[in-house]
Each structure stands twice: as structure tokens, then as C-alpha cells.
């Protein structure tokens, strides 16, 4: 297993798309600085302001960028035929997918945690003691949300990997991830009450605030899941997608 992990780690490092995906995610730091400077200027003019936290506002950028990394980890091999070479080297398909999942999960968790913690910390440092709304709690008190966000990114990347393996298509893999992230939650929000809150509670992007014990939104109120249940649902997303990918990878001709 160690050998296959080393191989998959080199595979991920040795293609340009990985750098672009992490770079796009890291753009959040720059956008977060620009946003914070902007709301600081507004606050200086008006005294105080209620602004969104940059690491929450730009989280979808991190999620989509690194989910694409997860999709490409398998679909690029399927597209160019490298998968056959990979399977000739590692005939146990579950082992190959597991190694990919471990590497993709580890890399995206580390990258998203680094980007989000940097965005979070820098924005609070720039804000100083101005009241911007998002910095009204202590620096350490906001960390659970940041870490839950990072975890959601890693899970989304694994969902991308699993659905990429299941659909064997980059376009379908990315579309699936975008649907989970944007399309389904917006549909759920317009269901009649109380179903809007109930269904929205299990939507992937809404799991982050529930894990951290925050409110979903003004419209939806609190989620229905306690933090531990929200965490389980988040993990279930990744596990279900990987299982689907494994079943297809195992049964289909390469």
C-alpha cells in the first residue's frame, strides 16, 4: 500500500493541473485581503459594518477548485488511457482507488486548511479592532468553522474522485460536484416550510455551519442536525461517492 501511495502522490504532483487547482484555491487569500481592505474602508467611513467573513464568502472557490482536482485525479487517466497502464501496475482496483482517495483527501485537506486559515487570520489582522461584523468573536472561537470548511473541501474532492470514477467523464464529474454544491441547495431552499430547512440541513454546503453549531441562514434558521450528525452526513457524502466509483471501476472493463 505504501508503494501505491507513493506512486499516486507523485502522479498528483507531476501534472500541471494540480498546481492550477491549488493556485485557484489560494486566490482566496488575495480576494480575502481585497475584500477586507474594502470593508475596512467602509467601516472607517461609517464607524462599523456587518460584512461577510471572506473565508466563508470565498469558500465555494476553494471547494470548486479542489473538487476539480479530485475529479481530474481519475478522469484524466481514463481520458488519456493512462488508467490501463496504472491498472497493469496495480491490478487491485480497490487498492488503486483507495490510494488515490488517500492522496487526494490529504492534499486537499492540507491545501484548503492552509488557504482558509491564512485568509481567516490575515483578514482579522487587517481588521484590527474595527467592528466589521465577522470579527466580533475571538480569533480562536472562529476556528471550528474554518476547520469544518476545510473538511468540507476535502470531502468534496473525494466526492469528485468517486463520481469521476463512476461517470468516467470529467464533465460529468465536475457537473455532479457543482450540482451538490449549488444546484440542489438552492432548490432545497425554496421547498415549503418546514421541508426547506429539513432538506437544506443535509445539503453539503449547509453541513459546515451545522458542524460548527452556526445558523444556516436567516431564511432557513438553525439546521436540524446536531454537530456530530452533520459531520457523519458530510463523511457519508464522500464514502457514498467513493463506493459508487469503486463499484464501477471494479466491474467495468478498463
Amino acid at each position: 500500500m505504501r508503494a501505491v501511495l507513493a506512486s499516486e502522490w507523485l502522479k498528483l504532483r507531476s501534472v500541471g493541473s494540480t498546481g492550477y487547482a491549488v493556485g485557484a484555491a489560494a486566490l482566496t487569500i488575495v480576494l480575502g485581503i481585497v475584500w477586507t481592505l474594502y470593508v475596512v474602508s467602509l467601516a472607517d467611513a461609517r464607524g462599523s459594518i456587518r460584512a461577510a467573513a471572506p473565508e466563508e464568502g470565498f469558500l465555494p472557490l476553494v471547494q470548486v477548485s479542489l473538487a476539480v482536482l479530485g475529479v481530474l485525479a481519475i478522469t484524466s487517466e481514463q481520458a488519456d488511457g493512462m488508467l490501463r497502464t496504472s491498472l497493469a501496475a496495480v491490478p487491485r482496483r480497490g487498492r488503486l482507488l483507495f490510494a488515490k482517495a488517500a492522496v487526494v483527501g490529504g492534499v486537499t485537506l492540507a491545501a484548503s486548511a492552509a488557504v482558509l486559515i491564512a485568509t481567516y487570520t490575515i483578514s482579522r489582522l487587517i481588521a484590527g479592532d474595527r467592528a466589521l461584523g465577522f470579527n466580533d468573536i475571538g480569533l480562536l472561537d472562529g476556528l471550528p468553522t474554518v476547520l469544518a470548511s476545510a473538511l468540507s473541501v476535502a470531502v468534496l474532492a473525494l466526492v469528485g474522485l468517486g463520481l469521476g470514477a463512476a461517470t468516467r467523464s470529467t464533465a460529468a464529474g465536475i457537473f455532479s460536484v457543482v450540482s451538490l454544491l449549488f444546484v440542489l441547495p438552492s432548490v432545497a431552499a425554496y421547498l415549503p416550510a418546514p421541508w426547506n430547512t429539513r432538506v437544506a440541513s443535509i445539503m453539503l454546503p449547509n453541513l459546515v455551519p451545522q458542524i460548527a453549531g452556526d445558523r444556516l441562514s436567516r431564511r432557513l434558521g438553525d439546521g436540524v442536525l446536531p454537530p456530530w450528525a452533520a459531520l457523519l452526513v458530510l463523511i457519508a457524502y464522500g464514502a457514498a461517492a467513493l463506493l459508487a466509483g469503486y463499484l464501477v471501476l471494479r466491474r467495468r472493463d478498463a
Binding site: A6, S7, S14, V15, E77, M82, T85, S86
Partner: peptide, 18 residues
């Protein structure tokens, strides 16, 4: 059946490591 963006050395190294 090679990733067009990967170097020949890394392509072989990926297989070798496994």
C-alpha cells in the same frame, strides 16, 4: 496512453514506485 503534461521520467517513476 500517457498524461501529456507529465515528463517521461515522472511517468516511469509513477509506475516504478507502485
Amino acid at each position: 496512453a500517457v498524461h501529456p503534461g507529465r515528463s517521461a521520467y515522472n511517468h516511469l517513476m509513477c509506475l516504478a514506485l507502485s
